[in-house]
Simulated scan of single mutants.
Amino acid sequence: MRNPLTHILGVDSNVAVLRELVRHGGALSASDIQGRSGLSRSGVRLGLISLEKSGIVVSEGSLATRLHRFNTAHFLSPQIAALYVAEKDRFTDIVESIRNSAGTQRSLLRSLWIYGSVARKEDGPESDLDIGLIADKEYLSGLVEAVRENLREPAARLGFLPNVVGLDLEDVSRLARDADPWWLTATLDVVVLAGDRPEEVPVRDRSHNYG
C-alpha cells in the first residue's frame, strides 16, 4: 500500500521491460521486448511476472501467443509514463546539443560523432559521453574549443559529462594505417551527428584530391 514504486521500479529488468512497453504504446510479445530491451529471456520473464503482479502490466492471449502491454488504467500510469517521456526527451536534448555544439563553425566539421559506452548503449551513471570530431588542421583547435564551451551549459543542465576528442586528417590517416586499438574501438559503434562516418573521412578526402 505505502510504497508500490519499490515493487514496480525496484528491479532493473522491471524498469527496462516497462520502458519498452510505455514507448511502444501497444502490445508486445516477450521476444519483442527482449529484442528491444537487450535483456535476457529470463530477465524479461521475471520482469513481466513482477509487473503483472503490480498491475502496471496486463497480459492477454494463450501461452504461445501471449502479449503484454502497459496498463494505462493503473493509478500510477500517468506519472510513470511521464517519467519515461522525460527520460527520452532528455537524451534527445543531449544529442541535439552536441549536434549543434560547433555553432557557426559547423560547416568546418568533417565528422562529429558519439562513441564509447553511450553509443553502445552500455553506459552507466558514472560514464562520460565520448565525442569525436574531425576537421582540417587549421580549424581543429578552434572547433574543439567551441564545442567544449558550447556544451558547458547543456552539460550542467542535462547532467552529462562530455569528453571531446579532436582529430585532423593526418591523425585519422595515421590511426587507420596503424590499426590503432583506440581508433578501432572509437569507430566500431558510432552515432554520427554531422558529416561522414569517421573511418570514411580519409577515403573521401583522397577521392576529392585525386579522383
Rank of each mutant, 00 (worst) to 15 (best):
N150L: 00
E153M: 14
L193M: 04
D180L: 02
E149D: 13
D171Y: 08
D189P: 15
A156L: 14
V190R: 00
R152H: 03
A155S: 08
D196N: 09
D180N: 10
F160K: 01
P181S: 13
E145T: 15
T185N: 13
N150W: 03
D171R: 12
N163F: 04
V147F: 02
A156T: 10
L169M: 07
L167E: 10
E153D: 05
L169T: 07
R148V: 02
D180H: 09
A146D: 12
V144M: 04
G166M: 01
R152K: 10
E145L: 10
D196K: 02
V190G: 06
G195Y: 06
F160A: 07
D171A: 06
E153A: 11
G159N: 06
E149Q: 08
P181G: 08
W183A: 02
V191K: 10
N163R: 10
P154A: 06
L175G: 04
L188G: 11
E170W: 14
L169I: 09
D189L: 05
W182N: 09
G159Y: 13
E149P: 10
W182P: 04
R197A: 14
P162L: 04
S173I: 08
R177Y: 09
V144E: 08
E153C: 03
L193F: 07
D189R: 11
A179S: 15
R157D: 00
N150P: 15
N150S: 05
V164W: 04
R177C: 02
E145K: 15
A146L: 06
R148W: 03
F160Y: 06
A194V: 08
L161G: 00
N150D: 00
N150V: 00
L188H: 13
L161N: 11
S173A: 11
G195V: 04
E170A: 15
P181F: 01
T185I: 06
F160R: 02
L184Y: 10
A156R: 09
